[in-house]
Design a binder for these strands. Structure first.
Lengths: 226, 226
DNA sequence: TGTACATCAGTGAACGCGCGTTCACTGATGTAC
DNA sequence: TGTACATCAGTGAACGCGCGTTCACTGATGTAC
């Protein structure tokens, strides 16, 4: 290994270490992460961090991208081995992967799906990693029958809009199934956030079973069970 | 009016004014509200605020209770005039009231249903106001048929737990309907949070129609449409 | 192989800021006699 | 009606803290000749 490459690797390793410590600090400060506290934990001067991240916001952005990628990777590798034809199983694999990851990394989940950080504006780099899980669900939708029961027709401007969105995500899917697909996605994130925030405390203890029951119901509406 | 009563009224008015200014500041600082900034806006010394609230956390608690109460009152007065027999309409009235209030008071909504504030622990006083909307939904559930289609039976520990919860909220309701009722409540909050956080940006513009479609679907599962 | 120079990670002091909370105080108003 | 006292809202200075960011610097390491 050349000297330059070695230096680059050391640099990359310390960058990772800073992010790792910062991730731990999310648990304490939430999104108003303190650069100085991170530097202190690493035993280095606070100014040294600026060799690695141009500002606090840039560090925050790196954490956000990593979180989206970790969540996306986790969902992808849970969904990939499932029989392509079993769309319900694929959907449930995604659901549990998202929930498990969120429970294992609550503060990172909050960073990406919690309340917006006051004063922080996410740059465009965060968009592609943010769409990974949604794309998985789009795939499940797309692999279904093109024609589906029209139990609840959607008409008017919403139908037109869904057609436009659908052309990208799941071409051929009828609007009401697409709507239920997006609704399922929203319900999934809502259920995970609800549990994480603690709203289920003193109400439901059988959380995994209750979660799965909800997600099965959402799947029925979206036609994943067919 | 006696002098003492007058003094009490002036005190109550200034207390309200402090809360009003603090509410405006939620938009800037989120939950890490600055007491000093609030005092500055009121043109008073920061120490003077301590005549009204013992600490920053106590002010925050007051804001939280007010927010729960305002949301609850708004949902209640939207649901009350609806024909008792039309459970779907009652449910949709609650849904739109919650959404409308959240869109009108996004930062207060975030305060109560957003990510937990790091370092803040809600006292018990916040619990009763927090349950007002849930109780409305419980009422809708309770007013339904005791026997209902058993499309998806729930068994095991979750069923037992739902029976316990159901005894309080909606006695007689079968476990799977109760589960769908809670799921509907979760979907409602999830959908509102999702829209508020901005996840719908560049995806769905017809938000009210899309929201209502979701809530109708949730109602079907919970048996509100029957 | 040896020397002069460039690179660059990391230091430590400093700037200017804001924060929550406490404390001794002023001064107006209301109460008791 | 007039005076002495109590109440209490509000002041302003201070304590002790933490923050993000900048800047001139040291010192080790790698490169070019």
């Amino acid at each position: 290994m050349s000297a330059a490459a070695l230096r680059a690797r050391v640099r990359a390793e310390l960058t990772d270490e800073i992010k790792a410590v910062a991730r731990r600090h999310l648990a304490i400060d939430g999104a108003n992460l303190s650069l100085r506290a991170v530097a202190r934990d690493l035993g280095m001067a606070s100014s040294a961090v600026y060799r690695y991240f141009a500002s606090r916001d840039e560090l925050l952005t790196a954490l956000i991208i990593d979180a989206y990628d970790a969540l996306g990777a986790s969902a992808e590798s849970a969904e990939a081995p499932v029989d392509r034809a079993d769309r319900l199983a694929r959907w449930l694999a995604v659901c549990h992967a998202v929930r498990d990851w969120a429970l294992a990394h609550p503060h990172e989940y909050t960073l990406i799906y919690g309340s917006p950080v006051p004063g922080y504006r996410a740059p465009r780099d965060t968009v592609p990693p943010a769409t990974r899980v949604a794309l998985l669900i789009g795939g499940i939708l797309r692999d279904g029958p093109v024609t589906a029961p029209v139990s609840d027709q959607i008409t008017g401007p919403l139908a037109a809009e869904l057609a436009t969105v659908g052309a990208v995500i799941a071409p051929g899917a009828p609007p009401h199934l697409l709507a239920h697909g997006i609704a399922a996605w929203i319900h999934l994130l809502g259920a995970v956030s609800f549990e994480l925030i603690g709203q289920l405390d003193n109400v439901i203890d059988e959380r995994r079973a209750f979660f799965e029951h909800q997600m099965r119901a959402a799947a029925t509406l979206a036609g994943f069970a067919a």
